[in-house]
Amino acid sequence: MTAVHDDTNVGGAGAAKPIAEGETPFRRFLNDYAESKVAVGGAVGVAIVLLIALFGPWISPTDPYDLASVTFMDNRLHPGGTMGSGVTAMLGTDGLGRDMVSAMIYGLRISLGVGIGSGIIALLIGVSFGLCAAYFGGKVDTVIMRVVDIQLSFPAILIALVLLATLGKGIDKIIVALVLVQWAYYARTVRGSALVERRREYIEAATCLGLSKPRVIFGHMLPNCLPPLIVVATMQVAHAILLEATLSFLGLGLPVTEPSLGLLIANGFEYMMSGEYWISVYPGLALLFTIVTINVVGDRLRDVLNPRLQK
């Protein structure tokens, strides 16, 4: 989310400035970004997904959690079938008689919420540790980075499995697991760029001015470490959404009362063999669309923000 928001903020700031001023860094960034048509498409896709999630309750045809309106009579309607309440189920209904479109919109809200929420927490934790490691160096650095290295040598899913197999189900637990999986990526990224920045003169200047350590770290060092962080954050949010869906599918993630897209797919799996494909297929497409668009944006951001690749 960070990246996407930055993206739009950047657009706002760039557009607000008079064009006559010439090329602002923001505008140049936008122009660079827009050179790839695919990437522009990706950004539009991300915007659509975010809007749907934000305004979900208002655009959803039905409330899939309103037990009064959901009846078992409507269960497993084919796409285009009419539910008892008279609403057309564009993409059919699931095994409990919920409209798939509505269930997917609500599922998307949960998926994005968990993905972005855990991303932000992991970002805060990871950035703090990474900056500390870079700024203090020595023992602090060694200990933090050793932990990071060891953790990153395990695949994310294994760590999540260890945690959820011992912790159990629940939205809080999956967020804890996702944060623990992700923080190390942020820590490593920030430390890497902060180490470069630390040797720059402006940090020395800020220190000489007698600014407090937190002020130097967060006020001066951090902003200069942002570009790689934005890229990692974008990719990590997609990763977190994917991981949450996978864990929910395995029955290790969210409880049935809070069905994310992953859980919707899992629920549909049992009907697959009897040819009732839509319960699994459509939430999967929605999940795929979400992740692909975020990754396309992240990929482009990496190309544009990486100074090494700039020609």
Binding site: A238, L242, A245, T246, F249, L250, G262, I265, A266, G268, F269, M272, S280, V281, G284, L287, L288, I291, V292, N295
Partner: peptide, 11 residues
């Protein structure tokens, strides 16, 4: 990189 493995398996 983006496709959920389990969903592709189902498909």
């Amino acid at each position: 990189f983006s496709v959920p493995t389990f969903w592709v398996g189902i498909m």
